[in-house]
Design a protein around this nucleic acid. Structure first.
Lengths: 239, 239
DNA sequence: CGGAACATTGAGAGGGATCAATGGACGTGG
DNA sequence: CCACGTCCATTGATCCCTCTCAATGTTCCG
């Protein structure tokens, strides 16, 4: 029924300006094609990988939307990120050869499989690819700094404002609207990511609506006043 | 007066089992010596680098203790980590060629300077070094996941318990006691890292003392009941 | 010895959590 | 097409953990 894998080529992929091959020359991209040879489909709600599983490949999101989450021994879990088209998942597995988080599809999705050993071999050949891999990992580290900032020193409204701005910005880079978006995750998942309870997320959405900053209809969000959102993030004490 | 740099060799460094050269063969380590040629001293309170500065090198902590922190436009800052001997600082700078955080010495310190371009060049030669660099970056990503977990879903007591356990574990790996430590950072810095105010940190310390779990005398901490600390981290609702 | 930086402790306030009830959206099957 | 159940979202009332403001104490160092 659903094929386990599909032949694919980075060099003809419409995400090549966004994804791993970004900035590579044509011949380098063709080399990359030889190792990024398979795709995999993941149904909504299914895991691309889970904590504890052996690591062997990185994955590039080709379509769909993922969350990554870590779980404590006592069962609490924390969403650590949301990944969309062109973003890379699986970097956590490199250090111990085991994944330390789960990656779950929030809608039917497709990923390109990039065997990491082959990626390492190829980046020994191409300085540009090597540097690009380093940048991808560094970008993740910088992103994490931002999340820590958010979790450690922002209030509920600031967190949600920052979250929405980050989402539309990334969606806009993918050709979507700057002011409208459809959330692919529940209030609870947003809350977990932001270190808030789902009720607080809901209440904060409602407050933004009352303030005329956004319109919300379930998962659909329209940003009516981008500047107001930005002001919320940057001005902690609006007194 | 204080020399800007000092000749050094990984192959004869007593940290080689802990630091970047970990696991390299003798000849590989000698190659590494050729690029890790300089050290730098940083006085307590001074910055090794600051956000916005151009990135060119990674740094290995040879002695001393650092904090890294990010700052928002409106002036709040968030401590994102504490780095001790053998740990690598500066990975945040790779993605944009600019540092995105400050690295500040919490006591007089010395670092080895590792020019990143040279490190990349050498990683193209040695698979082992290449893989090791990848692991270091991945380890940082996994560490960040843990911090997010802490900030997003733990209470004050759990955060402080997790923090103390993490510190002694890392110190123990460096030959120090499993049950005693001297904090190199203030309550405020601990609080920033844990997403708490300094008063809350202080109160939580006092509570642990009352409960007979630790002894505290200013920066000195003795862990009297390691199991109790572990229990606090893992059992959110002890009812 | 005196001052600055850091830490402790108390009292009170507030932001978000918790508990609880209601309502809406969606998919499935009758 | 409607009925039903499930999942998700909203909203209210109350609680409590942490923050805030404030005073005091301690250590360190010039």
């Amino acid at each position: 029924m659903d094929l386990p894998s599909i032949k694919v080529a980075c060099s003809s992929c419409n995400l090549r300006e966004l994804c791993l091959p970004m900035g590579l020359k044509a011949d380098e991209m063709q080399k990359l094609d030889t190792i990024v040879s398979n795709r995999k489909r993941i149904k909504r709600g299914e895991a691309l990988f889970s904590a504890g599983e052996r690591f062997s490949s990185l994955f590039a999101v080709r379509s769909g939307f993922f969350k990554t989450r870590v779980t404590t021994p006592d069962g609490r879990d924390q969403v650590t990120g949301f990944q969309m088209t062109g973003e890379i998942i699986g970097l956590d597995g490199i250090v111990t050869d085991q994944h330390t988080c789960d990656a779950v599809a929030l809608e039917d999705a497709e990923v390109c499989i990039m065997p990491f050993a082959k990626l390492e071999a190829l980046s020994r050949e191409f300085t540009s690819l090597q540097h690009h891999v380093h940048k991808i990992m560094s970008r993740e580290i910088v992103r994490d700094q931002g999340v820590m900032m958010m979790l450690g020193s922002m209030r509920a409204e600031e967190r949600l404002a920052a979250f929405l701005l980050n989402l539309v910005q990334r969606l806009h880079a993918r050709g979507f609207s700057q002011s409208e978006l459809v959330l692919r995750m529940t209030r609870e998942e947003i809350g977990s990511y932001l270190g808030l309870k789902l009720e607080t997320v809901s209440r904060t959405f409602s407050k933004f609506v009352d303030d005329g900053i956004i319109e919300v209809k379930q998962r659909y969000v329209m940003i009516k006043d981008n500047e107001a959102l930005k002001a919320i993030v940057n001005l902690p004490n609006c007194d």
